[in-house]
């Protein structure tokens, strides 16, 4: 059995090795696939904080992914059309700067997560799943009907946004940005889990009564976790939009929320490396099996079924020989 720390480090090393190999043999598409996997992993790391530590099964995390995407889309759209965004009282210039876009994406999705969490955390269990799903769908239909930014057709951004000192159009350089963001999020989650807050949040998942009895509010712990979770998934959304240079309402779709949960379950709920392994496997299957058959989801479903039936700790749980936390 392998210690979880080594699994995390090996996973990240592998994640780095594949695009470097692809660079050496000049396979830029593989780098793009790895970038896509890193971004999905980042989104799932965000969800894993709410789901794995806090026990909040959110079926609405696409809302934050989409908000991050649209934060990028709208800012870049106004930059490329040279028309400031008119908010009535004041106007905002568009921007092509990634750091500014990221901060906006994080702030907007954190705010949305706070509002959604405030209302959703009044419920638990299946009602929580349903209310987060409902919020996600609200954003989805709003985006579809918002003609200014392309409505159902989405919004194309012609040139990838810029990052100081890098040429983001070179696949390996954009991969580096996404990979560093993923590592930063994992480091953050690792520290968070070991902190007094992480201890209390993890206990709140197991027994709200216990946490209240020591004078802490389980709702407030969970709300803060939900906000952090939404912010990270929002950042992933901004990167995802930049990868595709395209934003559309599908980023808000409930299928995406579901896929994020599936990634985590396959990899290992609450485990650091869980979402990373899940996302890598997902993108690999999507590419290789998707090339063979349109019905590749059947095989994904089969893997999910096997994991749920025989390996409750996901792939990380199989490797460490320990069952995962119960949600």
């Amino acid at each position: 059995m392998i210690a979880e720390r080594w699994i995390t480090l090996l996973t990240l090393a592998g994640f780095l090795a594949i695009p470097l190999w692809a660079l050496a043999v000049d396979e830029p598409f593989t780098i793009t696939l790895a970038t896509r996997a890193a971004i999905l992993a980042l989104a799932a790391v965000g969800l894993n904080i709410a789901l794995g530590i806090g026990g909040m099964v959110s079926l609405g995390h696409a809302a934050f992914f989409g908000l991050g995407g649209y934060a990028m889309g709208i800012l870049a759209f106004h930059a490329q059309s040279f028309q400031p965004l008119d908010l009535g009282l004041f106007t905002i210039e568009g921007t092509k700067s990634m750091p500014v876009i990221w901060l906006t994406a994080i702030a907007v999705s954190a705010l949305a997560a706070w509002l959604i969490g405030l209302l959703s955390l009044r419920t638990t269990g299946v009602y929580f799943i349903m209310i987060t799903l409902a919020f996600g769908q609200m954003f989805f239909y709003f985006a579809i009907s918002w003609g200014t930014y392309g409505g159902e057709d989405g919004l194309s951004i012609y040139v990838r946004n810029s990052f100081p000192g890098l040429n983001t159009l070179v696949p390996i350089q954009f991969f580096a940005i996404c990979f560093v963001a993923l590592c930063a999020a994992l480091f953050f989650q690792w520290r968070l889990r070991a902190s007094p807050f992480g201890l209390a949040l993890n206990a709140a998942r197991q027994s709200e009564a216990r946490v209240a009895t020591v004078g802490l509010s389980p709702k407030r712990l969970k709300l803060l976790a939900f906000v952090i979770s939404g912010a990270i998934t929002g950042l992933a959304g901004a990167l995802f939009a930049d990868l595709n240079r395209f934003v559309s309402p599908t980023m808000f779709s409930w299928q995406l929320s579901g896929e994020l949960i599936i990634l985590i379950i396959i990899g290992g709920v609450g485990r650091l490396a869980g979402p990373v392994i899940g996302a890598a496997l997902f993108v690999a299957l999507e590419h290789w099996l998707g090339g063979l058959t349109d019905f590749w989801h059947v095989w994904l479903g089969l893997i999910l079924l096997l994991i749920v039936l025989f390996a409750r700790g996901g792939i990380v749980g199989l490797l460490t020989g320990k069952a995962g936390p119960h949600v």
Partner: peptide
């Protein structure tokens, strides 16, 4: 430790290992 964290109101510390 959870009791100690609650008693000393330190649950807002997000980054230092408990």
């Amino acid at each position: 430790l959870l009791g100690a964290v609650g008693a000393t109101r330190q649950a807002r510390r997000l980054f230092s290992p408990v």
